[in-house]
Design a protein around this nucleic acid. Structure first.
Length: 506
RNA sequence: GCGCUCGUAGCUCAGCUGGUAGAGCACGGCACUUUUAAUGCUGGGGUCUUGGGUUCGAUUCCCAACGAGCGCACCA
């Protein structure tokens, strides 16, 4: 399907070829970043102007008879902080770093040469070009490269978005992420902050003596979490396989193997709904520390997140949407039972009262385990009030088949979740390392739950590993995407994942 | 999975209780060597997401499908 814009661009492509010029460009060495050029002295007399060489995308164009003005963009910015000009009233404007730089180019018929001038006639918005010339200011005071040579680096055959309105249609943005990155600078800023956050987590953990490992993505049994897996098939072995839903069970095998501090940052896959907080594939950090427990994990989590905040800047007082979140340490620690008592008004151990409250909240109660009801109430009445950051610890034991029980109170498990802005950001246990008990919890399905929805999936291979002696350990899981959302004030997971899942077109 | 809303030019958007569509930018032509949302004149560009229905007539009303956004549910 060709429209007028596209056919005109194809014509121009042919014209460039006729001039003997490669419209797709070649290696282009020795150019300077636009940011560097903009810092050169611009007020020198004409005969002393420094020679410069730049490369980038044409994002704006103003054409006179014998002079063309271009705006050239590259990604060398990061010196300027801007405010979003969001038309969305729900969220406050937030600051972001503009990683792009723009510089004006003057192409004059006399100065650019015959072929250069012919090429200039074939330029379109979106083309990539290299410019060599002198840097100075125009009469109006605009920093400008006065071009002496124009090098074609790549033709754009598709029209680019409106230079003033840019891109706003969400679907269009997601299906043309490359344009979104070019024309919505906040997105690029988030993507680069994400890189920084992950890099910081790695160096923080490495500094604590952890080592990063890679474990299989294809699992025979998708365990370690309660989620439906994606199913696939291996042809040569003719066996069904699942994409992993967690990293847990392989990392714990490494504990048995004597790797005392391990972590993995990797993709996991859950065949469930899509929402602003859920993408079918997302990035998890899991780590295990031999001879630690869930309290060691609290300290570690706090230190790691604070290091990430230090890396991207902006301080410990941060905003998320219209809400303020104070990350200043130490973060609150709140027992699950206390949080429950406080917001539901009854004891989580009072079975009759829990049943009663569940009924009043219109929860289906038939055949459900007491702990399941407790947690459903927790999710309805407590979770959204946990602005945090707060470590909620000591969970109902039946919900935690991979967790060690509290010695003094075996109905509770040594587990915490870190809540920030009502979101579960991290989940940690004192790991269950008793293989006999592990076998029991794997085989005890909670009433009313299909096995595929259960965290308790029997995995004999894992139990056999544990039977060889797994050290007592603390373990932690962190949803990296949600962490990036919180730290970059992003309301939807689709804006911290560069290519979130979409239904294919047509 | 359920509910609400949306789908009009390459992009951003108008389009009144139903009479087969407009603007800005982008694109083509003419003029201009100091413009910067350049300007002036001018031209081309649309299966109004798709398929049915109601109607003399549907972009508009109804039904369905497809795609998307938001909310709810699921995610023990």
């Amino acid at each position: 399907m060709e429209n007028a814009v596209e056919s005109s661009r194809l014509d121009k492509l042919r014209n460039i070829e006729k001039l003997g010029v490669d419209p797709w460009g070649q290696r282009f060495d020795g150019h300077m970043s636009i940011q560097t050029i903009l810092q050169l002295p611009a007020d020198l007399p004409e005969d002393q102007r420094p020679g410069v060489k730049a490369a980038g995308r044409i994002v704006s164009r103003r054409i006179g008879g014998k002079v063309h003005w271009l705006d050239l963009r590259d990604w060398s910015g990061q010196l300027t902080t801007r405010k979003t000009t969001s038309d969305d009233d729900k969220h406050e404007a937030s600051e972001f770093t503009d990683w792009s730089s723009r510089i004006q180019i003057m192409l004059g018929q006399k100065q650019i040469g015959e072929i250069g001038w012919a090429l200039a006639q074939e330029l379109d918005l979106g083309d990539l070009v290299g410019i060599e010339g002198k840097f100075g200011k125009t009469k109006r005071g605009e920093p400008t490269i006065f071009a002496e040579k124009l090098t074609f680096l790549s033709k754009s055959l598709e029209p680019h978005p409106d230079k003033w309105s840019g891109l706003s249609d969400m679907e269009y943005r997601l299906r043309h992420r490359y344009l979104d990155l070019t024309y919505n600078p906040e997105l690029l800023d988030r993507a680069l902050k994400r890189v920084k956050i992950i890099r910081t987590i790695r160096s923080y953990l490495d500094g604590q003596g952890f080592c990063e490992v890679e474990t299989p993505t294809l699992h025979a049994i998708a365990g370690g979490a309660a989620a439906r897996p994606f199913k696939t098939h291996h042809n040569a072995l003719d066996i069904p396989l699942f994409l992993r839903i967690a990293l847990e069970l392989h990392l714990k095998r490494l504990l048995v193997g004597g790797m005392e501090r391990v972590y993995e940052i990797g993709r996991v896959f859950r065949n469930e709904g899509i929402s602003q907080k859920h993408n079918p594939e997302f990035t998890m950090l899991e780590l295990y520390q031999a001879y630690g427990n869930y309290e060691s994990m609290m300290d570690l989590t706090e230190g790691m997140v604070l290091a990430a905040i230090d890396a991207i800047g902006g301080g410990y007082q941060r905003s998320y949407g219209t809400q303020a979140i104070d990350f200043s340490p130490p973060w609150a620690r709140l027992a699950y039972g206390d949080a429950f008592q406080q917001h539901v008004g009854i004891s989580m151990h009072d079975e009759a009262a829990v049943k009663d409250a569940a009924q009043k909240t219109h929860l289906a109660i038939a055949g459900k385990h007491h702990d399941v009801l407790v947690h459903e109430l927790f999710e309805h009445k407590v979770e959204h009030k946990l602005t945090g950051p707060v470590f909620v610890h000591d969970y109902p034991a039946a919900l935690c088949p991979l967790t060690k029980r509290k010695a003094a109170m075996p109905t509770l498990a040594e587990r915490f979740e870190l809540y920030i802005h009502g979101m579960e950001l991290a989940n940690a246990y004192t790991e269950l390392n008793d293989p006999i008990m592990q076998e029991q919890t794997f085989s005890q399905q909670l009433a009313g739950l299909p096995e595929e929805d259960s965290m308790a999936k029997m995995d004999h291979d894992f139990i056999r590993a544990q039977r060889h002696g797994m050290p007592p350990a603390g373990g932690l899981g962190v949803g990296i995407d949600r962490l990036v959302m919180l730290l970059t004030n992003t309301q939807t997971i689709r804006d911290v994942i560069l290519f979130p899942l979409l239904r294919p077109e047509k």
